[in-house]
């Protein structure tokens, strides 16, 4: 039955090639209308683009994904509303006005990608995913790319919401809006968002239990940051991933580069390499 692996030729359906023994109709489920020759469905290799579309859809087609996305945008809206409310007559600076919102999005949006990876194991959908798409490395790559795009899209949406709110605040209180430093906010949010997305996906691959992975992603770097500041404040920067993010998103991204690189290696690169290697080899049950 090698025919199935070749693109179907127009007109050869539903007969099989003569070499395939006696001509039979295609094995299709038993409903009358399927006995009709089916429109040709050429067999194509599953490309990374198709995998990306599937994995992106999977981020937002479950209740968990939709709720998290709605929750993130809801928090942004609430912060914006609060800032509009407490604005006085001074000029509104977009960069200051939006700082809290973009930080929240940069931290929370990657959790959707984390959950998309852990769900494959906890809900055991990996059984179907890796059966339909056996090239696991490409599927995992598609997952991280999809999560990156979703994070960036969420950041873009919240930046728009924030910009609108800042304008409104300026109008309502008569102080107007300044966009000085807005480009820096956008740039730093994208850098931090991309890094936290990879970090969250890596934690998801490494731990594969949703609750524990989420807890580790949120708590472990913070806990390290607090403890190290207390115990060895002068050396704390070496493994503090948050201060590395701060430096990268500042106007001097190259400052303390060795410390930044080490922090990112320990908190992002190593979890990613170990987590994705394990996900590649892990037996799916």
């Amino acid at each position: 039955m090698t025919m199935s692996t070749l693109p179907a030729q127009p007109g050869d359906h539903p007969q099989r090639p003569a070499s395939d023994g006696p001509a039979r109709s295609r094995p299709t489920a038993s409903v009358a209308h399927l006995d009709e020759p089916y429109p040709a469905m050429p067999v194509r290799r599953i490309g990374i683009g198709t995998m990306f579309r599937i994995e992106f859809r999977k981020l937002v087609d479950t209740w968990a994904g939709k709720l998290l996305l709605a929750g993130i945008l809801g928090i942004v809206a609430v912060i914006c509303a609060w800032l509009i409310f407490r604005q006085d007559g001074e000029q509104v600076n977009f960069a200051d006005f939006g700082r809290a919102q973009v930080n929240v999005v940069g931290l929370l949006a990657p959790v959707i990608g984390l959950m998309a990876i852990t769900a494959e194991w906890t809900q055991r959908t990996a059984l179907t995913t890796f059966t339909l798409m056996p090239r696991r490395g490409q599927v995992l790559l598609a997952k991280v790319l999809a999560s990156l795009v979703l994070t960036i899209a969420t950041i873009a949406a919240s930046l728009l919401l924030t910009a609108g709110s800042a304008w409104l605040a300026g109008q309502l209180h008569g102080g107007g809006v300044s966009v000085a430093g807005a480009a820096d906010v956008v740039r730093s949010t994208l850098i931090v968002g991309a890094l936290t997305t990879v970090m969250a996906s890596a934690f998801g691959a490494l731990v594969a239990q949703t609750a524990i992975a989420v807890a580790l992603y949120f708590l472990a770097p913070t806990a390290y940051s607090m403890i190290s500041q207390a115990l060895f404040p002068e050396a704390a920067k070496w493994l503090d991933v948050f201060s590395a993010f701060d430096r990268l998103s500042s106007t001097h991204p190259g400052a303390d580069l060795p410390a930044t690189l080490l922090s990112i290696t320990v908190w992002i690169v190593i979890p990613a390499v170990v987590g994705f290697t394990w996900a590649m080899r892990r037996e799916v049950k």
Binding site: M1, S4, T5, M41, V43, R44, R45, I46, Q123, R124, T125, A126, L127, T128, T131, L132, P134
Partner: peptide, 15 residues
């Protein structure tokens, strides 16, 4: 190239 077009597989309905 696209395994699901040759073989339909269900290993666990609960998954």
């Amino acid at each position: 190239p696209n395994p699901g077009r040759v073989v339909g597989i269900m290993l666990d309905a609960a998954a």
